[in-house]
Design a protein around this nucleic acid. Structure first.
Ligand SMILES: Nc1ncnc2c1ncn2[C@@H]1O[C@H](COP(=O)(O)OP(=O)(O)OP(=O)(O)O)[C@@H](O)[C@H]1O
Length: 715
DNA sequence: TTCACTTACCTTTTT
DNA sequence: GGTAAGTGAA
């Protein structure tokens, strides 16, 4: 018997009793609902290992996660535990799973010639096309932009509410466009269908359609996937939950895992009621709660609990840890976002010495917030990998090249035609469409007329036809397309083309991993992060958006730009539901830390329009925390970081100021508002009181500023 | 219809 | 200070 290197796993030793119960009871529906760091992911991994040890065929296991990377890591982890490879287990996202099923059954859902997946930019292009075909918003600058329109269209789809309802509930200022948006939405759907295109939402809805109408397929998938596990269930949307029901059945061997306090994707239609109602939807659900946090030290847990305590709807999480030791989190107040980069850089280097380069991460709300730090890191030669933010395959030159390959696979893809042909001199969107229609119709004479007029067109068409006939691999195809495209690249980006050429090389590297063109093209949408892995250096610092950091952990975590307007983002400030989601986002961020947590709230932000540093207020989530939860460090004008002198700095008091300590709004027109002084701008004249606690002040030499009143001293 | 120029408006988060 | 959309000449 080839027992060989097979390890014996002591499940009882590796798991606590609740985890053990969840991992080793595979029959029937199970819900694991528990706080951050309580070992939910670990439970899934051990369940996988346990199933395989019991002799369950790996290919009868389906693992759904929120990124492919997460799935991959869990499978790798399982292999390590088992001490042998795991073949045939299906792990991925709902979207990638849906794609794999749909491409084999495309005719059944009305795509007899297959379909092409669109990324965000393609969808926006279609929206623009549809909008202008309707003639909506012509010459009207205030008309919602294509990005906004697409947001509303997909959000109404994901939340499964009408556009009117959506606008009334969360974008009231757009409510007057409801009728036209409804039309755009319909037009968008028709356009996609006509041109063999699908967006991310279509994958899910068509899969649902297929599962509900094709009983044979449903049953065969059900018997194929006997054991289903879904991670991060709090961030699934309604249609995903229905897909799970189709696949598992109400009595199926389904394990859902999640934490309602970590729901951070409602902006794209995720609905936390999925996890809360799970016990009602499935039969005889075994509910497992985990209460021990194995990740973080007590002081970090204290601050994360305090962040949740401020939530409008309380979470009943009582996490405890045995790591009762540990450093208090630090709140750093650099003088500006500019100096934040250097101060943080100092800390990174110090932390990496103690924890190792890979055990340090910098997290932020939005991708652009790390730009300053990235410049500083590059200057010092500190390696890093970045997750989140701008996507490699959304860069114009990558999309250009890919659009050639898309035409090989789907000639009906007008959006791709427009990209390809748009670079020919004298050809714009309209001509491109005409040419495309001619090519599709196969009218040789008409095609020849065009190729005579546009010499480049001849080469393009010949290459596309050639590649289609030879059924060339993705890499071979790129090797044909890139030389064709390079002159265009050089002409379009005269100062920038070397960098972009390098990007095309990287694309070629990725293409080498594929034999099938359609899989390659789909994965460029479904797994937009793989180029990062491709180029990633080992054992380096991580920079990541918080969304992309979900489920991960590091010894030391730094969160930057924790100031009002940036975190929470300005748009969420006045929308209670979004505001609460921002709070959970901060909770997710802080709970990534095992031993050290540093929060940074620069005292001023550089504003491009005024070309000045304007004072910034720490995030309300920070202001509302009790001071004993963290140590506060302020950057002095000489550059060092000092423990705060309580009296010398403004207090971040959340309680409204006493009315008599500030000028009275009621009489502001009649009454003199007086003067004040500010740390940076000096003495100024108060012009007006705006918001509940902000003042409009004219500082001689600096101009008019709006400043939170805590930051000025009234005279 | 295309393209180069001008102007308005912001810059979440992701499959 | 960068993109997206409108303007007007060719
Ligand atoms: N029973 C246990 N014994 C030892 N370590 C554990 C145990 N359970 C979990 N851990 C460790 O705690 C850390 C957090 O676990 P895990 O990532 O599974 O938590 P999680 O609940 O998925 O967290 P999150 O919701 O934040 O993603 C990991 O380092 C894991 O190895």
């Amino acid at each position: 018997m080839p027992v060989g290197d097979k390890k014996m796993i002591d499940f009882k030793k590796e798991l606590n009793p609740a985890q053990y119960e969840a991992a080793t009871n595979p029959q029937g529906p199970v819900l694991v609902i528990a706080g951050a760091g309580s070992g939910k992911t670990r439970t899934i991994v051990y369940r996988l290992a346990w199933l395989v040890e019991q002799g369950i065929p790996p290919e009868s296991i389906l693992l759904m996660t929120f990124t492919r990377k997460a799935a991959q890591e869990m499978l790798t982890r399982t292999e390590q535990i088992l001490g042998r490879p795991l073949h045939g287990t299906n792990g991925g996202t709902f979207h990638s799973f849906a794609f794999s099923i749909l491409r084999q059954n495309s005719a059944e859902i009305g795509f007899p010639n297959g379909f092409t997946l669109m990324d965000r930019g393609d969808c926006e292009d279609v929206i623009r096309e549809v909008k202008s075909n309707f003639g909506f918003g012509q010459k009207d600058r205030s008309y919602p932009k294509k990005a906004t329109l697409l947001d509303m269209v997909t959000k109404s789809r994901n939340k499964e509410v009408s556009i009117d309802f959506l606008l009334n509930s969360e974008a009231f200022h757009l409510a007057c466009y409801g009728q036209e948006m409804e039309q755009i939405s319909d037009g968008y759907a028709i356009y996609k269908k006509q041109h063999g295109l699908m967006d991310y939402d279509d994958l899910l809805f068509y899969l649902e359609e297929l599962l509900s109408k094709d009983e044979f397929l449903r049953n065969s998938l059900r018997s194929r996937f006997q054991y289903i596990m879904v991670d991060e269930y709090q961030d699934t949307n309604l249609v995903q939950a229905r897909i799970v029901q189709h696949l598992a059945g109400k009595n199926g061997n389904i394990m859902a895992v999640g934490d309602d306090a970590q729901s951070i994707y409602s902006f794209r239609g995720a609905d936390v009621t999925n996890i809360l109602k799970f016990p009602e939807i499935f039969n005889d659900v075994k509910i497992v709660r985990l209460e021990q946090n194995y990740r973080s030290t007590q002081p970090i847990l204290d601050i994360t609990n305090a962040i949740l305590d401020g939530a409008a709807n309380k979470f009943d999480k009582k996490l405890f840890t045995e790591k009762t030791w540990g450093k208090k989190p630090q709140l750093m107040i650099p003088l500006s976002d500019f100096s934040q980069s250097t101060r943080i850089l100092d800390r990174i280097i110090e932390l990496q010495k103690r924890h190792g380069p890979e055990e340090v991460a910098v997290l932020f709300r939005a991708g652009y917030q790390s730009y300053g730090l990235e410049v500083a890191l590059k200057r010092l030669g500190v390696g890093y990998k970045k997750y989140g933010g701008l996507k490699f395959n959304e860069a114009a030159h990558i999309k250009d090249v890919l659009s050639f390959l898309r035409l090989v696979s789907n000639p009906a893809d007008i959006i791709a035609w427009q990209r390809c042909l748009g670079h020919i001199k004298g050809v714009g969107p309209k001509t491109a469409q005409k040419i495309a229609n001619t090519v599709i119709s196969g009218d040789i004479n008409a095609i020849n007329k065009y190729t005579q007029k546009y010499s480049l067109l001849k080469d393009i068409l010949a290459d596309i036809d050639g590649l289609r006939e030879k059924r060339s691999s993705p890499a071979t195809s790129l090797e044909v397309v890139i030389p064709l495209y390079t002159p265009i690249l050089v002409a379009t980006y005269p100062d920038d083309y070397p960098r972009r050429e390098a990007g095309l090389d990287q694309l070629l590297q990725i293409a080498n991993n594929y034999t099938d063109l359609d899989s390659f093209l789909a994965d460029m949408c479904l797994d937009p992060d793989q180029h990062r892995e491709e180029a990633a250096q080992e054992n380096v610092l991580t920079l990541s958006t918080i969304h992309s950091a979900k489920g991960l952990e590091w010894n030391a975590v730094i969160i930057i730009d924790l100031v009002e307007d940036r975190f929470p983002s300005r748009k969420s400030m006045h929308k209670p539901l979004e505001y609460e989601e921002e709070r959970r986002l901060l909770y997710v961020a802080c709970t990534r830390a095992k031993e050290e947590l540093i929060l940074s709230a620069p005292a001023s932000l550089y504003r491009k329009n005024s070309d000045f540093n304007e004072p910034a207020v720490p995030s309300p989530f920070i202001r509302e925390l009790d001071n004993y939860l963290f140590d506060e460090l302020h950057e002095s004008y000489s550059g060092g970081m000092n423990k705060q002198q309580i009296a010398a700095v403004p207090s971040f008091d959340t309680t409204p100021r006493n009315a008599d300590s500030t000028p009275n709004k009621k009489n502001s027109s009649a009454q003199k508002l007086g003067h004040c002084t500010h740390k940076i701008f000096g003495r100024g004249k108060i012009i007006d009181k705006v918001d509940p606690n902000k003042l409009k002040i004219n500082f001689p030499g600096f101009g008019v500023k709006v400043i939170v009143e805590d930051f000025v001293e009234l005279l």
